[in-house]
Nucleic acid binder design. Structure first.
Lengths: 198, 198
DNA sequence: AAATATACGGGATGGCCGTCCCGTTTGTCG
DNA sequence: CGACAAACGGGACGGCCATCCCGTATATTT
């Protein structure tokens, strides 16, 4: 299940009806599952069906399909950004950067919707995130710069390169877990200045 | 411009009218440009408009949008496969493999349609190619196996990994040429057993 | 328990797009 | 030059889908 409160946490505007909260949560859960499996392409109709509600109920809680998608994706982005901040504190710059990369790929791989958001397929996640005060690009930029200053990552690599390769590791239909790890390793080794090779 | 003949080169079934050939070529050219820019998402109407013909003319020459897309993509795939066969003869296994990878990425980067075909976005290029006797997967597999036998590429890497990473280097909206080369280098270095670093 | 606002469902609406059709035009051959 | 088939154009059709609307059902309040 998911948080049961109203959309924006600005006070309690009026107190929601109980079935309202319940259905909202049902829709969110159904949407999370549906988007994870089929990405943005899933019809709203289908989400409503899964949630066991009418399409009107979906529309009322989330005015557009994009709004629903965004609510879900941004929540996940926020969690991952928090995680990345912790990484930056606990680890050396190099490992922090590589771990950040791996975490995002692993998470995105379980979630077609997030992967599409990261790849910018039909939805500009970064812009939406920025609108909500979540600076994905900035976080990546900092970790990359630190890792480069520490000499762990080739100096000529740019943020966009990393994002694209991240997306690359996600754009795979038959991604079983070992395959994903191999791809992560390939890209990380390619970015690394020295080569430990496991 | 493009080849002006009828679809399958099996003899001359009936002799096409001159305007027929001309319009067919116009449609192909327009479609090549449109698919390269916008990928499969481009509406057939738009292709017709660009070609300066009616939508009916497009439909008549190519019964479905997919058929048109396929005609274009497979022609390019064929050329690239020929090129890859030449690489396999002229170069050592390792360099041949890396060059193959680079060539496909460079080519695909100029062509959103081809990139989508490679990534399997809404169209299974490999299956279509196989139907036409073009074995993309097989060619890649051979080059990879040879490079691995020669010890140039990590032994645990699989064909699917390479395809996915190839796709990854293509899934980038803001791909200027140096960025593309950086990504190619990153991935190739990551796959390579020893690390020359330029 | 009655009153009222809130939420529900799912059909109606409108837009987009691929494909097909048919009245009209035009190239080709005798 | 005349006749005929080939090709054209673009409107019609049908399917898909997001969004909106409104009569009905129900939670909440007094």
């Amino acid at each position: 299940m998911v948080e049961t409160a109203g959309s924006a946490g600005s006070g309690t505007p009026k107190a929601m009806r109980a079935d309202g909260r319940r259905n909202r949560a049902l829709v969110l859960d159904a949407a999370i599952a549906a988007f994870a499996e089929a990405g943005l392409a899933v019809p709203v109709h289908e989400i409503a069906r899964r949630a066991g509600v009418g399409t009107g109920t979906v529309s009322r809680h989330f005015p557009t399909k994009e709004a629903l998608f965004e609510a879900i994706v941004l929540e996940r982005v926020e969690r991952l950004l928090t995680q990345s901040r912790e990484l930056a504190e606990k680890l050396e710059p190099g490992p922090a950067f590589f771990e950040f990369f791996s975490v995002w790929v692993r998470e995105g791989a379980l979630n077609l919707g997030l992967a599409q958001a990261l790849c910018g397929v039909g939805y500009d996640m970064e812009a939406a995130a920025l609108r909500s005060g979540l600076d994905f690009g900035g976080a990546l930029k900092e970790l990359l710069a630190a890792a480069q200053s520490a000499g762990s990552v080739h100096a000529d690599i740019e943020v966009g390169d990393v994002k694209a390769l991240m997306a690359g590791c996600l754009t795979r239909s038959d991604a079983d877990e070992p395959a994903r790890e191999r791809m992560i390793r390939i890209v990380c080794e390619g970015m690394r200045t020295s080569e430990p090779r496991t």
